[in-house]
């Protein structure tokens, strides 16, 4: 058989040159991400696709730990909406978190993250639900009155049109006033993943300069 292991890739594999051309990543960085992807996607089910349990295991070292925000991020990474994350989805989604990714992409991703019910708006009930979820996660105890006060104050700052929902334009305005809202949308690790993770054995098949 002439088949080589070298050509066996995970389902949804895309050429690093293609992904590098579409994202801020270099070809070498995409290849490094592929090494990470293979580890994540084979940690529980060896099918080369990241299942939600594998995502949770990677984030929390616990496959059964549910978390509202991890669920939302998984769902946004799962672009094809088929319950798993393939390599192309992994790279394209992570690219939004690259320090060199356009700020507008980060703004839109964060907006979609908070738009829990995917209505195209962030609603007050969604904001309160997220605050309560965070309190539950952190085991912080705040009275109902304090939660209402926090949500109210944030809502007054954000819902500048006063129509009871936050649209993308209002979200953009809020973020411009408080840039730290996007702090988690940038992962410094991604700036040069090949140096940050020297354990990855890299043997680039294509020089970055070739693309």
């Amino acid at each position: 058989c002439f088949c080589s292991k070298k050509n066996k890739h995970t389902p949804g594999y895309e050429e690093p040159t293609v992904l590098a051309a579409e994202t801020p990543f270099t070809v070498s960085e995409v290849e490094a991400l592929y090494e990470l992807f293979k580890k994540l996607s084979n940690s529980i089910i060896s099918d080369g696709l990241i299942h939600k349990e594998e995502f949770q295991l990677a984030l929390f070292r616990n496959r059964n730990r549910r978390n509202l925000f991890a669920d939302r991020i998984f769902d946004l990474f799962d672009i094809k909406r088929n319950g798993v994350i393939d390599f192309g989805e992994f790279v394209r989604s992570l690219s939004v978190f690259h320090p060199n990714a356009p700020i507008e992409d980060k703004i839109k991703f964060a907006f979609r993250l908070y738009d829990l019910r995917q209505t195209g708006f962030i609603e007050r009930e969604e904001l309160k639900e997220m605050v309560l979820a965070l309190l539950h996660e952190s085991e912080l105890v705040l009275s109902e009155d304090v939660v209402e006060m926090i949500v109210d104050k944030t809502w007054k700052d954000a819902d500048t049109k006063g129509d009871g929902k936050i649209d993308l334009e209002e979200w953009r305005d809020l973020v411009s006033k408080s840039p730290s809202l996007l702090k988690n949308m940038t992962l410094p690790y991604l700036k040069d993943i090949t140096l940050s993770f020297p354990s990855f054995v890299l043997r680039s098949e294509v020089e970055d300069t070739e693309i």
Binding site: L40, L181, F197
Partner: peptide
């Protein structure tokens, strides 16, 4: 100082911290 609820969420939720994808390897 009052903190924004979104800031509260983004800075405190472990589910929103993707650096763990790399650190836990």
């Amino acid at each position: 100082k009052f903190f924004n609820a979104f800031e509260f969420i983004s800075s405190m939720s472990s589910g929103f911290d993707l650096s763990n994808l790399f650190e836990n390897k």
